[in-house]
Design a protein around this nucleic acid. Sequence first.
DNA 1: TAAGTTATCGACTGGAAGTAGAAAACCTCG
DNA 2: CGAGGTTTTCTACTTCCAGTCGATAACTTA
Lengths: 227, 227
Amino acid sequence: MHEKPTHVVSAVVLQARSGQLQVLLWQRRQPPFDGAFALPGGYLLPGETLEDSIRRHLAEKVDVRELSHIEQLVTTSDPARHPSEWQVATAYLGLVPSDLDPTLPSDTSWHRVADLPETAFDHGVIISTGRERLRAKLSYTNIGFALAPHSFSISELRDLYTAALEHEVSATNLQRVLLRRELLEATGELRHSGPSGGRPAALYRFRSRTLSITDQFAVLRPPGQHG
Amino acid sequence: MHEKPTHVVSAVVLQARSGQLQVLLWQRRQPPFDGAFALPGGYLLPGETLEDSIRRHLAEKVDVRELSHIEQLVTTSDPARHPSEWQVATAYLGLVPSDLDPTLPSDTSWHRVADLPETAFDHGVIISTGRERLRAKLSYTNIGFALAPHSFSISELRDLYTAALEHEVSATNLQRVLLRRELLEATGELRHSGPSGGRPAALYRFRSRTLSITDQFAVLRPPGQHG
DNA sequence: TAAGTTATCGACTGGAAGTAGAAAACCTCG
DNA sequence: CGAGGTTTTCTACTTCCAGTCGATAACTTA
């Protein structure tokens, strides 16, 4: 038989924290890339699927039950990606709701995606791929559920979208679009805002907390489905 | 070190042929899945990337220069996917323009995606994934270039979209949308249609023949970019 | 030259979404 | 208790996108 590559898995774990999209990184303490920051992950073991494997590795960093969504991102295979070992690497995208603050091991911490430190291997590009995937899916799926708490006001949701999309989002439009798509529903409760007063916000929740694609895209719909 | 999986690559090669979306399949002549149809592909070799590898394997089936587009689709890893070997498999999506008719080896042929024979491994789901990827990208990218000849009439293009999307498409809308997005340009030439007369069709071409994403999606655009 | 066929164009329409301002519902302070 | 400030929510207006349909153009064939 042929020589075989080693298969490793990693994850881009994203969370909207204090108005910024942040990613979970681990600081390496051995070569190669000693001192640089890397995505959490590790080796694929016999008998497990790639998704099992990344969940197992992530469990060492954050409680896996805190992940609201996980999906496969991309598999990279540049023979030169690791200086001494032939590796094929599959990256996943994981999301954590904004109301959780997992306790992290001392070598692991959150970093703003917009302002990354020196990263190991090809992890810089992979993080960009993850952010782009999230941005795209915010537009045509209900993936917002994975960034948001179970219930939230429209303003809070707007802030999450703003952080992830990195541009201003109108609360009016966001509410109208998500309600028309029947992705949100009102809980019937109100939240009395904290220090500075103001009208209490109505609270909403996502109808479903599993990924669903919104219809077709804008154009070239089947005929008879106007608008 | 750990035990390692074998890494294999495969490709969903699609073409719009005689009004139907079709996929290139190869009939197996050994176990497992003796007699079933499988995606073309094979083992990953040392020193090559996954994309290099699938191009090398495809070269045995179709001339690689006939592929107008190729992109990574998904990596599957079910430990039970192969009865005797631990495999991780990366699938690619490849597209062939409708005006080419590659000469194929005797064990390989085109099959309508809407009416597939018995397939080997997890190849049935992978083909579905490929078709869905193509359908989605027809809506928000210029990927039509990969299905179409270098120049074509709007009606011909409409027929390609109809085959790939599996629903009727209006030539009027298609032309208006693709022109507004500046994906198409007129060649200035006319084609005198064959047997039954009619007004000669103006010919068009795609401005670019590499994948480009059309702007943002419909909703939640940055402000100031109206419409 | 009339009839049939195919392609192209333009006008109409409903709906999606950006914008802005008014109104509602709360707070705090005098 | 009421005035003023703050935040949220609603509504009206507007622009743009795309589905529909009918008219027109340019050809072939009888």
